[in-house]
Design a protein around this nucleic acid. Structure first.
Lengths: 336, 336
DNA sequence: TTGTATGCGTTATCAA
DNA sequence: TTGATAACGCATACAA
């Protein structure tokens, strides 16, 4: 590992010597609200400026037992929706004096390893911001005690004592189904990404339930296995290939925008069908490109800012955190 | 700030007591290559497992003067290309035993603040992975000494002593211009995102130079100011509105895919023109969605894996790092 | 208000 | 090989 310049960081001790006070007075000058005379503070600050001193956060963390670092676990970098969320997360956390450790959860470094590692680094909190976490492994009792507080973002949490911040799926699906029904669609289909996930199952269940309320019991279920444009295309390709035109769905709801865009490409490009005349498409997330005239995708926007604020409130809050469900916004465009 | 469970992490001292050895022996058991008997190690490891001990990385960092944390500065979350790069970066850094601190550079927290902060946290290195850094401010002498080593990813570096890893722009633009010329285009345009950036200027310069070599001296220059689909659309809209059809470019090269996709939407959607028949489009980055049949965008792919490996090599390397230029790959699709 | 002693949990160095 | 002493830079508690 390359070494930083030989110049060491100046310490409180050195500033103290320069200012002619004890090092504890230097500490006080840098501790808001501590008792110190104006004169002492001024002299310390002058010496500090001259020596280019600033407190060593590492040492502070060791002494205070708080790093002001938050680990964010991500496992799904294919979903471009992650990016605006990461932007908002980092921005708001930084504003709160916290900094993000971005942890890539994958086969080589799974969430159990990651959690152990985050604990070793003494992070103040862990945000689970992925799709494919298996709740059971995190609920493992070995991990139960002494670990940093965990929170789930944009997904359900089945883990005891681990609250989540989610977009209200029931409300979202109700609005979507209402809209589709009103538009006259009657043969709905649902494409899910990861069928093993409780969040995915829940959305699908709401979709089915609300259609049932309207007297539509037959829901075509497609499974893309993953969340990518390619997976969406493959899944719809397989479906259209094996289904006679008269039997096909008239509207396909995809679990997220990326699946929807992939499906749309395949439907129009490879099969020469029209959207929404032959098959209408609905996504979820309101990814920027879905709004382009090339797609004009009807979708549902998660309340990103509110969600991020909520999870930060949980992290910096002092009271016991509880799962929060926030309403999103229906975005109707030309694909339905 | 919420406190972690009252259960404190077990320390080497406690393990030592349980195993009946001194705490230094415990440390040795966890230090590969240190001299310790098999028997001692076994007893320590047993006690450690029973007590659920693992070394505190914070304390280690303070003692060794190395945090094994790398700060990554990002200022441009609109470009989806950031996501795969972040994925590769985190994955490869983690494999090297390093972890990413993701820093959002914006108006409230500029790169000078961020650098000072990263220094306070004693990060082992800083990766500049944005578009709009102003080189001058980072070259400021106040920041010159004692700061962590800095490296620039996917952009030129004008900063003395700060090496960069970039995709070979000269090669890329040569291949692109060759391709376009071969296809018969003769009235080229270039849309840049941020005209103030040296990297942007360089690409444009190569584009102009290579066309000049082929006897084409007139290059239409568009400026989108920012890097977003919307900015690309607005820019091309303004251009087409003020330019008579006969005067228009026959091919428009955009500085990145997002600009290109935005421009393409506008050209086809609002102006009813065909791509590539009326205007051909070229992007840069090979963003996944550009490959969809809705766009089928001709573009240029940066050698992401090689670039990441190169920058990690610089970080963990012992010899003086020098700017590395790597060849990318031309991706020809139907938009040209 | 200011200075002193002690602790945070490791690593580095030396002596046994 | 093992134990002991010092150091990393700051914060907390207490005494002056």
């Amino acid at each position: 590992m390359r070494k930083r310049d030989t110049v060491r960081r100046t310490t409180a001790k050195e500033v103290a010597a320069a200012a002619g006070v004890s090092k504890w007075t230097v500490i006080r000058a840098f501790t808001p609200g501590s008792s110190i005379t104006e004169e002492s503070k001024r002299r310390v600050m002058e010496a500090a400026a001259a020596l280019n001193y600033s407190p060593n956060l590492l040492a502070r963390s060791l002494a205070t037992n708080s790093t002001r670092q938050v680990a964010v676990f991500v496992d799904d970098f294919r979903n471009p929706q992650k990016l605006p969320f990461l932007e908002t997360l980092t921005e708001r956390l930084q504003a709160a004096g916290l900094v993000v450790m971005l942890i890539n959860i994958n086969n080589h470094f799974d969430h159990v390893h990651a959690l152990l590692h985050a604990d070793q680094r003494q992070v103040d909190a862990v945000i689970l911001f992925g799709t494919a976490f298996r709740d059971e492994t995190l609920a493992d009792r070995k991990l139960g005690h002494g670990m940093p507080p965990m929170f789930v973002l944009a997904r359900d949490s089945q883990i005891e004592g681990v609250p989540a911040v989610v977009c209200d799926a029931e409300l979202a699906l109700r609005e979507i189904v209402d809209h589709l029904h009103e538009k006259g669609y009657r043969r709905p289909g649902f494409m899910s990404g990861a069928t093993a996930l409780s969040t995915a199952l829940r959305r699908r269940q709401h979709f089915t339930d609300f259609w049932a309320e309207k007297g539509v019991d037959k829901i075509e279920l497609l499974s893309a296995e993953k969340y990518s444009a390619e997976a969406g295309a493959t899944s719809v390709h397989e479906y259209l290939s094996r289904t006679a035109p008269a039997e096909r769905v008239d509207v396909l709801m995809c679990e997220n925008d990326i699946l929807a865009l992939g499906a749309m490409d395949e439907i129009r490009g490879k099969f020469g069908l029209r959207v929404p005349e032959d098959i209408a498409i609905v996504g979820f997330d309101n990814y920027e490109l879905g709004g382009s005239s090339a797609y004009s995708l009807t979708t549902y926007e998660q309340p990103r800012f509110e969600m991020v604020e909520a999870i930060i409130g949980m992290i910096v809050g002092t009271t016991e955190a509880e799962t929060v469900t926030l309403p999103g916004k229906m975005i109707i465009r030309n694909s339905t």
